[in-house]
Amino acid sequence: MIGAASALNGNISGEWYLALAAVLFAIGAFGLLIRRNVLVMFMCVELMLNAANLTFVTFANMLHDIGGQVLVFFVLVVAAAEVVVGLGIVVAIFRRRANATADDFHLMKG
């Protein structure tokens, strides 16, 4: 079982991981632009950040450089901090009205 998994790992070249990351990033960006629920929009941001993380790890592996893997930790920490603040803002808005749909945020125009 373990042998089969490692053989599979050996067969997949880095380019596939990069392509997967690019697809994930595109899904995240597209989702952020078309979805109207703020929480789903947060998830899309997370998806984009994790796509970047996957790219970092893949490149670190391809370049035999530990630096790229270290960068992932920074991104993870920042992503966590960002979500904390984002959810706080959503809660503050929820207290005013009972939903979190982007279409309702139209107090300001011009």
Binding site: A21, F25, A29, L32, M48, L49, A52, T55, T58, L71
Partner: peptide
Amino acid sequence: GAFSSAVFVYGIALVYG
């Protein structure tokens, strides 16, 4: 802002690669 940060990080990843 979060969208632009994510774009920025992906840019860093590609430049790093």
